[in-house]
């Protein structure tokens, strides 16, 4: 508990470090913060062209919203993923890239990944705001769902930063992790139903039946991915305009508690040694 109160005591530091990330990032650029929207927009254009126009994925109709727009459907899943991706890749490096600071000043080290996640969260809010405007213009009645969207954004952020915290500690011991992670994240992206609907995987799984003679099916393994549930929740709320299934929510919350718990525990146990290990 004393550890938690120490983190609470450093909230001003957390805020200042967050400002450092946010303000420092786009200094001396003409477009400033707008650059953070450039990446998602490029991804949306490319994926929509490939998957909706060339590959002709089946139409994704929102139930009950009635939306039928691949680009929007894609973005509802893509923005959470991009956030997750950034938190994980930046967060994993949070300790190693701040080695100088850690070796010169004492402060709760946990604020480093938290500040990065905060700054990234700020970018995500901007992106989501643009998405909400686009959804509203194109006929999704998304406004009543916004409080829940905000809530799950916070939950997903806690899950992401928890994982990033664990990774950042591991990265101090094994610097390979940062490089390995970029590859893992690529696999992870394509193994999460962001570009394609999960129903396509279900169809394949049904055809295959039990894997290697066991009752375990492809979709069972596929569903172990913790991000899958979060993506579903965001699509339900934003695109379909309905409540996500209770089991999905419970599993997502479980993952969040687990990841965050592991992250805080890793810091509580290792933080005192970090200055030496770096």
């Amino acid at each position: 508990m004393s550890y938690v109160s120490e983190i609470w005591a450093s909230r001003e530091l957390l805020q200042n470090l967050t400002n450092r990330e946010v303000r420092g990032k786009y200094r001396r650029t003409a477009l400033g913060q707008l650059w953070s929207l450039a990446n998602p927009i490029a991804a949306i254009l490319i994926y929509t062209f490939i998957f909706s126009f060339i590959f002709r994925l089946p139409a994704q109709v929102g139930d009950p919203s009635g939306l039928n727009n691949y680009a929007l459907w894609l973005v509802c899943g893509l923005l959470p993923w991009l956030f997750f991706n950034r938190v994980l890749s930046l967060g994993t490096d949070a300790l190693v890239s701040n080695a100088g600071l850690i070796q010169k000043v004492y402060f709760p080290r946990i604020v480093l990944p938290l500040a990065l996640a905060n700054a990234t969260f700020f970018t995500w809010i901007l992106e989501m705001a643009v998405l909400v405007i686009a959804l509203s213009l194109l006929g999704s009645f998304v406004l009543p769902w916004l409080p829940l969207v905000a809530l799950f954004m916070v939950v997903f952020a806690l899950f992401s930063v928890g994982l990033a915290m664990v990774f950042s500690i591991i990265n101090v011991y094994f610097r390979d992790l940062a490089y390995l992670l970029t590859i893992v994240l690529q696999f992870w992206f394509y193994l999460t139903p962001i570009l394609y609907p999960v129903e396509l995987v279900v169809t394949q799984s049904d055809q295959l039946g039990g894997l290697i003679g066991t009752p375990v099916t492809l979709i069972d393994v596929y569903s172990l991915n913790p991000v899958l549930g979060f993506i579903e929740i965001f699509r339900n709320l934003l695109y379909d305009n309905r409540m996500p299934e209770a089991t999905t929510v419970v599993i997502a919350l479980g993952w969040t508690v687990g990841a965050l718990g592991a992250g805080v525990l890793a810091y509580a146990r290792k933080e005192k040694q970090l200055a030496e290990l770096l």
Binding site: E12, R23, R28
Partner: peptide, 23 residues
Amino acid sequence: LEVGSGFHLELSGRENIYLNGSI
């Protein structure tokens, strides 16, 4: 132990006073 720990080079002196002070 070191002066200017955590200074961000792109930020102004003013901003860095607040940043460094809170560190």
